[in-house]
Simulated assay, not measured.
Amino acid sequence: MPVLVVIPARFASTRYPGKPLVALTGAGGTSKSLIQRSWEAASSVSGVDRVVVATDDDRIRDAAQAFGAEVVMTSQSCANGTERCAEALENLGGGYDIVVNLQGDAPLTPHWFVEDLVKGLQNDPMAEVATPVLRCDARALNGLLEDRKAGRVGGTTAVFSKDRHALYFSKEVVPFTSKTYTDEDETPVFHHVGVYAYRPSALAAYSKWDSGPLEGLEGLEQLRFLERGRPVLCVEVEARGRQFWELNNPEDVPRIEAMMAEMGMQ
């Protein structure tokens, strides 16, 4: 079952222009761009047949090729990473049973998140799309709440049914909780990890659908599947002591660098 990993990357981000080329300094002072660190994360995943960067920008293409990545050029009309993955798959001529969208702003994504995600989709024939969710510890939940109090749009949260099919995704912290959590507590909030695994048929259908009102309000591409009644499987993954955060805003750079230093990532 051939697996393709696509890293969609665009320069003209609304919240953080030029984000893929932002430098992140790891332990020991090693500095690499966000797109390179995301590509290295994708390349560490086992069971993957090919990893490509999909972009519409020559600056990102040149930077990615300089560190050895394969690049697929896509159009500027792609509204989000899922549409870019669909176009990349088409440009490559298909030939893959599962396409993974490892978004270019998630350099801390552990390889087992993606491996568990692919297995989850393989084992659920009803699901056309799968995405990982990580139960927030107190530190992560407090970080999400702090972002919202400061008026920043940070991570995304997910709620799902007993069969693990998504009910909703939001940039608000859902479900609502007023409790103050300590390190010993298990929180009820799941952080949505910005990775997706699709069957090619789901990608082909997605690119033909118009964006729905919920996708427009939240700015979350996966809601297009839910608005069309298509099941999205939430695969719970374990942190195994690793910190996880996405780079959404300039304020996230020192936060991620601190996590990298804590984990000893070069």
Rank of each mutant, 00 (worst) to 15 (best):
V5Y: 06
P8F: 01
A9G: 08
R10G: 11
F11N: 13
F11C: 03
A12E: 07
Y16S: 06
Y16L: 13
Y16D: 05
K19A: 04
P20F: 00
L21H: 06
L24Y: 12
L24K: 10
G29R: 14
S33Q: 09
I35S: 06
I35T: 03
Q36N: 04
Q36D: 11
R37K: 06
S38T: 13
W39Q: 10
S44Y: 08
S46H: 15
G47R: 01
G47F: 05
D49K: 06
V51D: 01
V53Q: 08
T55N: 10
D57T: 02
R59P: 01
I60D: 02
D62W: 09
A63H: 10
F67I: 13
T74C: 10
T74W: 04
Q76T: 15
T82W: 05
E83I: 00
C85S: 00
E90M: 08
E90N: 14
N91H: 11
L92E: 04
G95L: 00
I98W: 04
P107E: 09
L108E: 06
W112R: 00
E115G: 08
L121T: 08
D124A: 15
D124T: 12
M126K: 12
M126W: 08
M126N: 15
A127D: 03
T131L: 07
L134D: 13
C136E: 06
D137V: 02
D137C: 11
A138Y: 12
R139T: 15
R139C: 04
R139A: 15
A140K: 11
L141M: 08
N142W: 06
L144I: 01
A150K: 13
R152M: 09
G154Q: 02
G155N: 05
T156E: 02
A158V: 15
D163Q: 14
D163C: 05
H165M: 10
A166S: 10
A166P: 08
F169S: 00
K171G: 10
V174H: 03
F176E: 12
T177N: 09
S178C: 05
T180P: 00
Y181G: 14
D183K: 14
D185Q: 02
T187D: 14
F190M: 08
V195Q: 06
A197G: 11
Y198C: 00
Y198A: 05
S201V: 11
A202Q: 15
A204G: 03
S207Q: 12
W209E: 08
G212L: 07
P213E: 14
P213Y: 12
G216K: 15
L217D: 13
G219H: 13
E221W: 09
F225H: 07
L226N: 03
R228A: 14
G229Y: 05
G229R: 09
P231K: 00
V232C: 01
V232T: 10
V235Q: 01
V235M: 11
E238V: 04
R242Y: 06
R242L: 11
Q243A: 10
F244E: 03
F244P: 07
E246N: 13
P250G: 12
E251Y: 02
E251C: 06
V253D: 07
P254K: 14
P254R: 13
R255I: 08
R255V: 07
A258N: 03
M259L: 08
M260R: 13
